[in-house]
Amino acid sequence: MKDKAKILEEVKTMKKVATRPKCLSDRTFHYCPGCTHGVVHRLVAETIDELAIQEKTIGVAPVGCSVFAYWYFNTDFSQAAHGRAPAVATGIKRSVPGSVVFTYQGDGDLAAIGTAEIIHAANRGEKITVIFINNAIYGMTGGQMAPTSLINQKTQTSPYGRDSETMGYPIRVSEMLSGFEGVKYLSRVAVDTPANIVKAKAAIKKAFQTQLEGKGFSMVEVLSICPTDWGMNVPDSKKWLQENMIPYYPLKEFKAPKAEDAKGGE
């Protein structure tokens, strides 16, 4: 084993190829090992850095595993009641029109208790950006069935598998919102492979840009894993996402601003 002094000496001469985004605080994530929340946080933070909007960004944290999202971003934040993040974001954006406002919500928050809020914020074309984490389960409360849980998926509250007869079908939120006039950018991505992470980053950036240009509502649905509540290790989780989630929730850019949508930036 090399001694410590020698390692430090070597580090000095190394080229820096990656660094913590300025917008990301140095607090250790509270998420479970292998959880992709951390990846998505990083992508959002990188975007905020690249667009140089840290000083005017206000985040809205949900209720769910990412309830403490505000610990990790060096921006102003509001912590919303369960499902209400799009309403809170509406209030903020309407009060500080020059700001950049994003919500970060899970599938229980956005697609169950907060259905009305997301639909109407989208329909009003609120100039906010929504980062929607779809991992097909309630994480924080211990693995209950989410509106996005797949058919036959076993969860704490669908122990025999989700039965469409009594539990309905998994909601495709992006497909639902894609018909709304107020929605200007909408994309579904995944963070299962490096290649998909790069695509996810590009989508998140486009979403923020759509807001910056004052065009309307933007959302990125991110297919994510929850190794803890899925009861799998990380490689198996990624495989499960690829084999089960992507076929039902196809990765795709549903909507992107057309040139004529531009109303001049804010």
Binding site: V88, G91, I92
Partner: peptide
């Protein structure tokens, strides 16, 4: 001024939460 007819009472009060948090009179 800003007048928003919200989709529900629940949404309206949460809009107030966001707006009031920015320091404006709401």
């Amino acid at each position: 001024g800003v007048f928003v007819q919200a989709e529900s009472e629940v949404a309206a009060i949460n809009m107030v939460y966001g707006s009031g948090g920015t320091g404006v009179r709401v």
